[in-house]
């Protein structure tokens, strides 16, 4: 199993939530971080692959890593 070397500061566990809620919660959570801090979003909504990364970039955040090799997807996003 692959893991990540990036160490997040906060986690948003969105397991079981359908779209658009994972993306909405991510965008609401990001401003609570200090610049440079990293949020880990865990989602098992496959559709989130088409929204969380693009929304995060569109709203001015940096997507560091996306892990998508199974039913659970991990997004690491830096404010």
């Amino acid at each position: 199993m692959k893991s990540t070397t990036i160490i997040p500061d906060f986690r948003l566990d969105m397991i079981g939530e359908p779209c658009p809620y994972p993306a909405v919660a991510t965008l609401e959570a990001m401003p609570q971080l200090r610049p440079g801090q990293i949020l880990e979003v865990i989602s098992d909504c496959p559709q989130s692959i088409n929204n969380i990364p693009i929304d995060a970039r569109n709203h001015g955040y940096e997507v560091l890593e996306i892990q998508q090799d199974g039913p659970t997807i991990r997004y690491l996003i830096r404010r």
Binding site: D9, F10, R11, A29, Q32, G70, T72, L76
Partner: peptide, 13 residues
């Protein structure tokens, strides 16, 4: 929003 100090291990079955 949980404060964490490590990534969550993912159980990808």
């Amino acid at each position: 929003l949980q404060k964490v100090s490590a990534a969550q291990p993912l159980n990808q079955h």
